[in-house]
């Protein structure tokens, strides 16, 4: 049972997974309640483009991808403020364009030898101590901001119109949230992969919402579930020899179905 823990890479992966899962669970509550569930998926694709550009231009992955993701999130936020463009349409335009740019660069530079399998599907083997530090720093900073701005975030996502009446700095809060979201997706890519991040951001809060009607509790449950899903999923990925991202998402989906069934029975 404890066999995988003898490997340093696995211990690093488990710690990173627990942190990333908790972070996605926390950020996901705000995303799901703002009805922007698709943004995690979109932003991960946008950041793929940023990652490729960073690689070609020899810029540090975290710096390049974070900046790219942040700009994409801000662009989505600006575009969706226009009445004629809905949130999902804005996400679709910005993020697929960015993803397409990444693909175009890869096909243009035939000498591009780096494998992007890990970026697409997640792989804990590649997590370095540097990655672990980056994940821990991002998780700590994001948690602190969301803790101290808890009341503001809650008011804004529940009732933006009245939040403006109370002079909440809506644009600043939106911008900071875009930054948090971009940083979350960037540090999650290694473990979850571009294609699977959306599930880690959406499944824990949706499951938590089925279990509680109280905002505080939804946050705590979502964070706990996110972390649990990641740790258990990575453990399973070791035994079944499948990608970590896929194992985490499948495990989370299984529990989502169980809780949905329980919720359905309870409400009958």
């Amino acid at each position: 049972m404890f066999e995988p823990f003898q490997y340093e890479f696995f211990v690093r992966g488990i710690i990173a997974g627990a942190l990333v899962g908790a972070l996605c669970g926390l950020v996901g509550v705000y995303i799901v309640l703002r009805k922007m569930a698709y943004i995690g998926h979109g932003l991960a694709h946008a950041i793929f483009g940023g990652a490729v550009v960073s690689y070609v231009m020899a810029i540090n992955f975290y710096v390049g991808a974070s900046l790219w993701g942040f700009l994409s999130a801000v662009l989505i936020s600006l575009a969706s403020r226009k009445r004629q463009i809905s949130n999902d349409a804005a996400i679709g335009i910005v993020t697929t364009a960015s993803f397409a740019l990444g693909i175009a660069i890869i096909s243009r530079y035939k000498s591009f030898t780096r494998s992007f399998d890990a970026a697409l599907f997640g792989n804990i083997l590649g997590i370095t101590n540097g990655d672990l530090i980056a994940i821990a720093v991002v998780a700590l900073l994001c948690s602190l901001i969301m803790f101290f701005w808890y009341k503001r975030f809650l008011f804004l996502i529940f009732d933006e119109e009245v939040a403006r009446v109370y002079r909440l700095p809506v644009t600043i809060i939106d911008t900071i949230f875009s930054l948090i979201l971009a940083a979350t997706v960037v540090v999650s890519i290694q473990i979850l992969g571009v294609t699977l991040i959306a599930a880690a951001v959406v499944i824990p809060p949706v499951t938590a919402r089925l279990l509680s009607n109280n905002f505080h509790k939804v946050i705590f449950i979502s964070v706990a579930l996110g972390s649990l899903y990641s740790v258990a999923g990575m453990y399973l990925s070791y035994y079944f020899d499948i990608s970590s991202g896929a194992a985490i998402v499948l495990f989370a989906t299984f529990w989502f179905l169980c809780v949905s069934g329980y919720s359905w029975l309870r409400n009958r």
Binding site: D159, V162, L168, N213, F215
Partner: peptide, 29 residues
């Protein structure tokens, strides 16, 4: 009509929002 009635908040949590300007820098009320 603009309110999302499925949003996970209790009646007290909604009323507390009206106190946001009284202790804006505290994370709790």
């Amino acid at each position: 009509e603009t309110i999302d009635w499925n949003f996970p908040v209790t009646a007290e949590q909604v009323v507390l929002m009206g106190r946001i300007t009284h202790s804006p820098w505290l994370p709790w009320h």
